[in-house]
Design a protein around this nucleic acid. Sequence first.
RNA 1: GGCGGCAUGGCCAAGUGGACUAAGGCAGCGGAUUGCAAAUCCGUUAUCCCGAGUUCGAAUCUCGGUGCCGCCUCCA
Length: 492
Amino acid sequence: MALKVYNTLTRKKEEFKPIEQGKVGIYVCGPTVYGHPHIGHAKSYVGFDVIVRYLRYKGYKVRYVQNITDVGHLTDDADQGEDKIAKRAALERVEPMELVEKYMFSYFEDMDSLNVLRPDISPRASGHITEQIEMVTKLIESGYAYDVNGSVYFDISKFRDYGKLSGKKLDDLEEGVRIDVNPEKRHPSDFALWKRAEAEHIMQWNSPWGKGFPGWHLECSVMSMKYLNATFDIHGGGIENVFPHHECEIAQSESANGQQFVKYWMHNNMVTVDGQKMGKSLGNFVTLKDAFKKYSPLVVRFFVLSTHYRSPMDYSDEALSSMEKGMNRLHNTIKNVREMLSLAELDGDVSVNEGFKLSSGRTLGEYKDIFIEAMDDDFNATKAMGILFDLSRDTNAFIGSGGKVDYGVLKGIDSTFRVFGGDILGIVPDSFGEAEGVNGDQMDSLMNLIIDTRKKLRDLKNWELSDEIRNKLDEIGLVIEDTSGGATWRRK
RNA sequence: GGCGGCAUGGCCAAGUGGACUAAGGCAGCGGAUUGCAAAUCCGUUAUCCCGAGUUCGAAUCUCGGUGCCGCCUCCA
């Protein structure tokens, strides 16, 4: 079975073949840290998290680089406008780098909550000014860029392939210009590699062209090539960055090196909120911190994965709460399995039995096959998640079938959930933690006491009181389930 | 105006020519189980926006509509 990846460059699914056998270099456009991360960040970075996790599962040694943009991203991509960081810093009355620290931590905090693994390198644009200046120099020397009054622009007419990623033609672009053309540019689509800084601009560095700061597109080229290679395997990002950002990255990188920049371009789709585009101007931004007040981060992750990474995702309360119920059901199955298993393992080691035919007719080995088949098809985590639900139903039927349970099968089920649900999709925790502030053992003892007491009441057929206890516990979020084998409890 | 994408059951969402008599989740309904609940299991709820065409065969390809969305300005 071969892994297939949809490549924006060719607009086709292609078999994934890394440049260097057994290794993958992947660069994903990171956030511009001038505000708290929002649900769009979750879609993007959870999506790529699963991609990276799966590549590792497949045995690749992956180096995952994701930048932090802390300078140069203007409020207007036509190279006018203000620097987003500087603007926001002025608003919050802090140093730009203070602002950057604050929101970078906020970003990592939320990503950690979403169970997104940290990139191997999180390079910051402001930490790579020297390298960026070097690249601009190289482009000027080779005739791809020109400097005007202390700003340097990339000369788009020198790069024949401009538009190969986005499918745009230069002629068409000129037509639709809705913004004032910067008179310094030779062609309206020429883009800034280096910007002259006005005296009052807070962030500026010395350069051969005077004081200034790097253009936004430059950092990604410089940092990806520094930590990966002049040609590397995967470059990812949001679909809205295909043009102009990634197109410009290609132009400057391939001009500088005379070789292909990226082999596979991967783009994830956008988020809408209640069917409407989420945008600053529309004021319908959902920050992750807000979402987490209502839904656990794992629910948000679950929700993100319920839509394929290349499809748009609509955020709504209805969708989130239906996901929450689904996730709880899945987790519940796994909790039951682990409980039974831990009891069984008190009596000695259990060896895995993968060959057992579950009631769907599938064995665990077959589950593994179809799961991998789904993931191999351009990381179809949505389909893969559906397979986990199939396994959940099979598991429940297996547990509830009565008679003696083969613990080897249970152990196989548990490890299947751990690897596919946990390691790869990141939606199944290693352990289901206890509520904070309450000692787990104490809580268990307390609940066992209540369960024992209720059993006595129920033996006396005192339904009224035993039901009252069950209902009251339910109200405070503790669910008692009376089964033929005795009562169990769980948190809602 | 230019370029690109999407349209699947009540809702969300996989599936891009033949095991689809269309996954999975949520919601609903019927049944099993239960003292009653809960949980769980079983069954049940769609011919894939409209029209024409290609094909032995189409949700899946082509053309023409209709609707929505994205990029070309902010934003992952």
